[in-house]
Design a protein around this nucleic acid. Structure first.
Length: 715
DNA sequence: ATAGGGTTAG
C-alpha cells in the first residue's frame, strides 16, 4: 500500500501526496512509518532540488497538522530527507528543534554532515552525541570515521577506532570497511593491513576498499594485483568499483599487457559501457601512451562523455606530447558548451608549466577568471606552479598571497618554487608559516625544504629537517630526499662526509644519487676523487645510454685538467652511442620566440648579434673577466677554446636581447644546464647593462642582479 | 528509517 502511495507522490506534488496519505486515514491506519516511507522516497529523485522542494511541501503539511513533534521517526526522516537532498542547513534546523532525539537522530545528523562534506562538523556532532550520553552505534562510528578519513585526521580516527572496539563495533564488516578507508586515506598502510587481516568476515566492499587502498599507496601497488587475484579465487565477482581500483594500480605501474587483459575481462562481464569504467580506461591508456586506444574509447562513449572524460583525454594528449590536440580539445569544449572545470584548467596549466610558456599560461589564467574558477584551490595551486616554472616567481607569490583557500599542493608549489629560484630563506620561512597554519608537510614539502637548505648552505638545519621527517611527521625519507642531502654535503665541500652518508642510507644509492655525487665532484674547486670515479662507474652501469653521465665525467676530469681522461670519457660516450641532446636557448620577444644553438648562423640578425656579443665581451674583459676555458671540454689551443665558449647558445640569446632597446628584466630559457663560463659572463653582463637577468636552465632558475646570482654560484 | 568501496588535477 505504501509503495503505491509513494508512486502517486512522485507523480503529484508533495502537498497532494500528504493529503492523499491523510485521506488514507479512513481506509487504513495511517502512522508515522507511512510518512517516513514517503519522505525517504523523495531523495531518490534524480533532481535533488526537486526532491527537496517536494520534501518542503510535506514538511509544511506536517507542521500545519502538528505532526512533526509527535513521533521521533518523523523528525529523523526529515533530517535524512534534507541531508540526502544536499539541504544540510534544513536538516540541521530540524535536528536542532527536535524535542527529543534518539540514536537514529544523531546518526542521521552525523552521516548527513559527512555526506554534505561538512567533515569537521560531523566529527563535532559525534562528540556532542557522546557528551549527551548517547552510546555510539555502528552508523555514527562509520560516518565519523569517514569524515576523519576525508580530513586526514588520523589521531582522532584512531580514538574513534578505539572507542568502537570498546563497544565491539569493530567486529562489524561495515565498520571495518570504514577503518580500511581511514587508514588508506591517511597512508597508514600497516594499520590498514592489520584491520583487513583481523576481520572475521569480508564482503565485496571490504575487498574493493582493500584493493583500492593498496593501489593508491605507491609502496604496495603490486599487492593490489595480488589481492585482486585472491579475491577472484575466493569466489567473489569483481564489480565496477573493483575494476576501477585495479585499473588504477595497473595504470600507476604502466602495465599495458595486464591492463589489456583486464579490459578484456570487462567486456566479458559486460560492464565496459559505463562512464566511470571508460574514464578509468582513458586514464590507463593515456598513461601507457596508447593514445589511439583513448581516441577509440572516447569516440565510442558519445553521450556517456562527461567532464572527466574530456579531462582524461586532454591529459592523455599532454602526457603523449601532443600539445596541440590537447589545446584543440579545450577549444572544442568551449565551442560546444561543454563545461570546463578546475581539472581541465589545472591539466592545461601543468602543460604550460612543463614547457615554460608564460604567455599561454596567462591566457589560461584569463580563462580561469572568466569561468569563475580562479578561486578553486586546484586551479590556484596549478597557477602558482605555472608562474614559478615560467620564471615569474613574483606573480606566483602574489597569486599565492591572494588565494582564499590553500592546501598542501598550494604550499608545496610555492615552497618548491622559491627553492627552484634559489630563494632559500623565503622557502624556509614559508615552510614555518605553513606549519603555523596547521598544514602538515608531506614528502614533496621536504624536497622543497631540503633543497632550500642546500641553496642557503644550511647543513645542520638540513639534517634537522631530515630527522623531523620520520621523527615528527611519520614520513619515511625517499631517494629524492637523500639526494638533496648529498647535494647539501657536496655544496658544503664535504665530499668525505658524502661517503659516510650514503653508507648510512637504508637503501642502495640509485642513479639519481650517483649523479648528484658526480655533480658535487665536478665543482670548480674540487679535485677528481675516488668517489667521483666510483659514482661515474655506477652511473654508467645503471644508465649506459644517458649522455649526461659521460658529460659529467668528462667535466670532472676537465676541472682538474686531466685531458687524457676527458678524451677517454668522450670515447666511452661514442662507443655507447649515447646521444647528447643539442643545447639551445630561447627568448620570447614581442615578435615571437627566438631560438639559438651554439655558434648559430641562422638568425636573420646574426651580424648585429655577433657584433653586440663582441662589444659586451670586451667590456667584460675590461672589468676583469677571464674566460673559463675548461668548459670548452677539449684540449685545444687556448685561443680556440675561447672561441668555442664565446658562442654558446645562452650568450647569443642575451646578445640578441641587448640589440633591442628595453629596460625590462631579461628572461632566457635553456634546455640544458648553463655552463660555468656563461654563468660567470651573465654576472658581469647584469652589472654592465644594469638589468636583471633571469635564466632558466634544465635544473633551476638563476636570477642575476648587479653581478650576483641567486644560486650563490652553486647549481 | 540511519552506513562503508570508484574515475580526471595541482
Amino acid at each position: 500500500m505504501n509503495g503505491l502511495m509513494v508512486g502517486l507522490a512522485k507523480q503529484h506534488h508533495g502537498e497532494e501526496a500528504a493529503k492523499i496519505f491523510k485521506e488514507m486515514n479512513n481506509l487504513v491506519e495511517i502512522n508515522a512509518s507511512s510518512y517516513a516511507v514517503l519522505l525517504s522516497s523523495l531523495s531518490e529523485f534524480s533532481d535533488l532540488k526537486e526532491g527537496k522542494r517536494k520534501g518542503q511541501e510535506v514538511h509544511a503539511y506536517l507542521i500545519r497538522n502538528a505532526l512533526v513533534d509527535v513521533w521521533i521517526l518523523i523528525g529523523n526522516s526529515l533530517v535524512n530527507m534534507y541531508a540526502k537532498c544536499n539541504a544540510i542547513d534544513n536538516a540541521r534546523s530540524v535536528f536542532q528543534f527536535m524535542p527529543s532525539k534518539d540514536s537514529v537522530s544523531w546518526n542521521s545528523m552525523i552521516s548527513g554532515l559527512d555526506h554534505n562534506e561538512r567533515f569537521d562538523e560531523a566529527v563535532a556532532c559525534f562528540h556532542k552525541m557522546r557528551r549527551n550520553g548517547t552510546v555510539p552505534s555502528k552508523f555514527s562510528v562509520i560516518s565519523a570515521l569517514s569524515s576523519c578519513a576525508s580530513l586526514g585526521w588520523i589521531m582522532l580516527g584512531r580514538q574513534i577506532h578505539g572507542e568502537g572496539t570498546k563497544y565491539g563495533l569493530d567486529l562489524d564488516v561495515s565498520v571495518s570497511n570504514a577503518l580500511l578507508t581511514l587508514y588508506a586515506e591517511t597512508d597508514y598502510m600497516d594499520e590498514c593491513k592489520r584491520v583487513f587481516f583481523l576481520m572475521p568476515e569480508y564482503d565485496q566492499v571490504s575487498w574493493n576498499s582493500f584493493i583500492g587502498a593498496l593501489a593508491t599507496s605507491d609502496v604496495s601497488v603490486l599487492q593490489a594485483i595480488k589481492y585482486f587475484l585472491e579475491m577472484m579465487q575466493a569466489g567473489w565477482k569483481p564489480n565496477r568499483v573493483t575494476f576501477i581500483n585495479i585499473l588504477a594500480a595497473v595504470s600507476s605501474l604502466s602495465l599495458l599487457e595486464l591492463g589489456r587483459q583486464i579490459h578484456a575481462l570487462l567486456l566479458k562481464y559486460s560492464i565496459a559501457d559505463d562512464n566511470a569504467i571508460e574514464n578509468t580506461l582513458l586514464a590507463f591508456y593515456g598513461k601507457c601512451e596508447q593514445i589511439e586506444d583513448c581516441e577509440i574509447i572516447f569516440s565510442r562513449m558519445s553521450e556517456r562523455r562527461d567532464e572527466v572524460s574530456w579531462n582524461s583525454m586532454i591529459s592523455g594528449y599532454i602526457h603523449n606530447g601532443i600539445l596541440h590536440k590537447a589545446m584543440d580539445m579545450v577549444w572544442f569544449m568551449m565551442q560546444r558548451g561543454q563545461r570546463l572545470d578546475g581539472f581541465t584548467l589545472a591539466t592545461v596549466l601543468s602543460a604550460c608549466a612543463s614547457v615554460a610558456t608564460l604567455e599561454r599560461g596567462m591566457e589560461v589564467h584569463a580563462c580561469a577568471i572568466r569561468a569563475c574558477l580562479e578561486s578553486e584551490v586546484v586551479v590556484g595551486s596549478a597557477l602558482v606552479d605555472m608562474y614559478a616554472k615560467c620564471g615569474r616567481i613574483d606573480y606566483a607569490a602574489r597569486f599565492f598571497q591572494s588565494m582564499p583557500v590553500r592546501n598542501i599542493y598550494s604550499w608545496n608549489s610555492m615552497i618548491c618554487g622559491y627553492a627552484r629560484h634559489g630563494h632559500g630563506e623565503k622557502a624556509l620561512k614559508l615552510f614555518t608559516q605553513m606549519k603555523q597554519h596547521g598544514q602538515l608537510p608531506d614528502h614533496v614539502s621536504f624536497v622543497g625544504v631540503l633543497s632550500a637548505c642546500s641553496h642557503v648552505g644550511l647543513v645542520d638545519e638540513g639534517f634537522k629537517h631530515l630527522k623531523s621527517m620520520s621523527g615528527v611527521y611519520g614520513l619515511a625519507p625517499r631517494m629524492e630526499h637523500f639526494s638533496c642531502m648529498v647535494d647539501l654535503l657536496g655544496r658544503a665541500g664535504d665530499v668525505n662526509k658524502i661517503e659516510e652518508f650514503i653508507k648510512s642510507m637504508p637503501m642502495d644509492p640509485n642513479a639519481l644519487i650517483w649523479r648528484t655525487i658526480l655533480v658535487a665532484c665536478c665543482r670548480a674547486n674540487s679535485r677528481t676523487t675516488e668517489l667521483g670515479r666510483r659514482a661515474a662507474k655506477m652511473l654508467i652501469q645503471l644508465e649506459p645510454q644517458n649522455a649526461v653521465n659521460y658529460v659529467l665525467l668528462s667535466n670532472m676530469h676537465a676541472a682538474s685538467g686531466k685531458w687524457e681522461d676527458v678524451a677517454e670519457a668522450r670515447l666511452a660516450m661514442r662507443n655507447a652511442s649515447a646521444k647528447k641532446e643539442a643545447g639551445c636557448s630561447w627568448v620570447t620577444m614581442k615578435d615571437g620566440v627566438h631560438v639559438f644553438v651554439a655558434g648559430d648562423q641562422t638568425h636573420p640578425e646574426k651580424e648585429k648579434i655577433y657584433e653586440k656579443l663582441k662589444e659586451i665581451m670586451n667590456k667584460m674583459r675590461g672589468m676583469g673577466y677571464v674566460p673559463e676555458t675548461k668548459y670548452a671540454l677539449y684540449d685545444l689551443e687556448l685561443e680556440n677554446k675561447e672561441e668555442l665558449i664565446s658562442y654558446h647558445s645562452e650568450k647569443l640569446a642575451i646578445a640578441f636581447v641587448l640589440t633591442r632597446q628595453s629596460e625590462l628584466p631579461i628572461r632566457i630559457m635553456k634546455n640544458l644546464r648553463v655552463c660555468g663560463d656563461c654563468h660567470t659572463a651573465f654576472k658581469y653582463i647584469s652589472k654592465i647593462v644594469n638589468r636583471q637577468i633571469i635564466l632558466r636552465d634544465s635544473n633551476r632558475f638563476h636570477h642575476f642582479d648587479d653581478g650576483i646570482c641567486s644560486c650563490g654560484d652553486y647549481w
